[in-house]
């Protein structure tokens, strides 16, 4: 048994918000449970109420239109991985999702859960940062948009408050070609958490490049956009590496030493830039 707690499966988002508001800090949203249930088993958290949002219709959306891309908060990662439209539009997003855990886990785990868990190593974070994604968040008081860029406030901490339910993750409209890619350094080829991960989105028409890095700071880090106009690939890479080094502060932990992280971060970034600049990252 994973502990003593109550379980509720609300019929509507409103009901979910109400239950969560009543429960306050002692209540937790349950999506795929692949983070939350592990925390319960290990005794890291002991909420008294789990509010299961997986079957709420609003959280099942999956839209990939050029004007709007929406991934519902209860959509399992495998659905993201296998969606062809998504892959065509955002290869980096599909690759990031595919890099997470195992096939079995991805049938449960969600994009929203990955973000809300706010691990510094969360694999969906860098790609959603570079895509300027926003979460639609609802609570008893109403609905608001929370940019992923403002979500993380510390290791395992977000700006969400008790009572909030993430409804979906939205990508802004695509205007023109966008090339995205994701890379992850792990200890073993089998399932592993990232030692370092990073994502890039390159819009050739606007000559902008966005890069985000994970596992090298208390939160995933989005670098300031890079203007690629008139910059040689080499100069661009140097600039990205400099910015990444300045914005991160890798630490030693059981997964890797700070030194190793510092050594592979530039490698990962160079390869990532090759992916998007050479077009391997796909696009529309």
């Amino acid at each position: 048994m994973l502990g003593r707690f109550e379980y509720a499966r609300p019929q509507s988002v409103d009901e979910a918000c109400r239950l969560l508001a009543e429960g306050g800090r002692a209540a937790a949203v349950l999506a795929g449970g692949t983070d939350l249930l592990v925390d319960l088993r290990n005794g890291f958290r002991s909420p008294s109420l789990l509010v299961d949002v997986k079957r709420l219709g609003e959280l099942q959306a999956l839209k990939t239109r050029s004007d709007e891309t929406v991934v519902g908060a209860a959509v399992p990662l495998n659905v993201v991985v296998e969606n062809r439209e998504l892959r065509k539009a955002y290869a980096g997003l599909s690759d990031a999702a595919l890099s997470i855990a195992t096939y079995q886990l991805r049938n449960r785990a969600t994009v929203a859960g990955n973000l809300c868990n706010a691990s510094p190593a969360a694999d969906m974070a860098p790609i959603l940062l570079v895509l300027d994604a926003e979460l639609t968040v609802q609570n008893a008081k109403g609905t608001r948009a929370v940019p992923v860029a403002t979500l993380f406030t510390g290791a395992k901490r977000t700006c969400l408050v008790p009572g909030d339910v993430v409804i979906d993750v939205r990508m802004p409209p695509l205007d023109g070609e966008l090339r995205t890619a994701f890379r992850k350094q792990q200890r073993i080829r089998g399932h592993d958490l990232a030692v370092v991960n990073a994502a890039a989105a390159y819009a050739p028409s606007r000559a902008t490049l966005r890069v985000a890095v994970g596992s090298c700071a208390p939160t995933p880090v989005l670098l300031e956009p890079f203007d690629t106009k008139g910059t040689s690939p080499q100069a661009l890479a140097d600039e990205v590496l400099r910015a990444a080094a300045a914005a991160t502060a890798p630490i030693d932990d059981v997964r890797a030493s700070a030194a190793y992280r510092r050594a592979v971060l530039p490698v990962l970034l160079r390869r990532l830039l090759a992916d998007v600049v050479s077009g391997r990252g796909g696009g529309i």
Binding site: L2, Y7, G33, L37, V38, Y103, Q104, N107, R108
Partner: peptide, 23 residues
């Protein structure tokens, strides 16, 4: 018991899941 080994794999609506991480 934490989703890492797959020994508990069963199918839930035809898709495999680790039953240790499903209530």
């Amino acid at each position: 018991g934490i989703g890492e080994c797959g020994a508990c794999t069963v199918l839930l609506d035809r898709t495999p899941v680790t039953a240790c991480l499903v209530l």
